[in-house]
Amino acid sequence: MLSLVRSLWEVFRHTFARRVTVQYPEQKAYLSPRYRGRIVLTRDPDGGERCVACNLCAVACPVACISLQATEDEHGRRYPEFFRINFSRCIFCGYCEEACPTYAIQLTPDCEMGEYKRQNLVYEKTDLMIDGPGKYPDYNFWRVAGVAIGGKDKGQAENELPPVDTHSLMP
């Protein structure tokens, strides 16, 4: 008997407690910055594509949902000719982000990806590419990489010394 009264009191007390329910479509739940949701391709601070089409994300993916084709522009800068993620296969494990050496591929706190047609879950590069640098605003791979591309020759990258002339005896 006493325990029933105690239970009733417990429930009564809860009628005045703070509501924990989130009224979802109207009120969005908070997602942490680390949340592994919709995958995006980012750009470096200059606005160029970060992806160098090294294929590491495609290899790291446990479900093989990423496919891409590498190509080069006229300045020798590698980029993916197409970049396709099949989100109906993706398990959002974040391995692609972990593998990406240039911070190009990133997972974002967005989980609202419902589609009526399954085919629409195959995202092409135009769907994936965003206009900003994402979580890493300052990193610019092509500014620090030693490779020569149009407008930046060997030895002109940040923290890089000019190349050594191997035919000269001078130090």
Partner: peptide
């Protein structure tokens, strides 16, 4: 879990 791992159930 979401805060530390990035996902609520499939933490990995």
């Amino acid at each position: 879990f979401e805060m530390v791992a990035g996902q609520r159930m499939m933490t990995s």
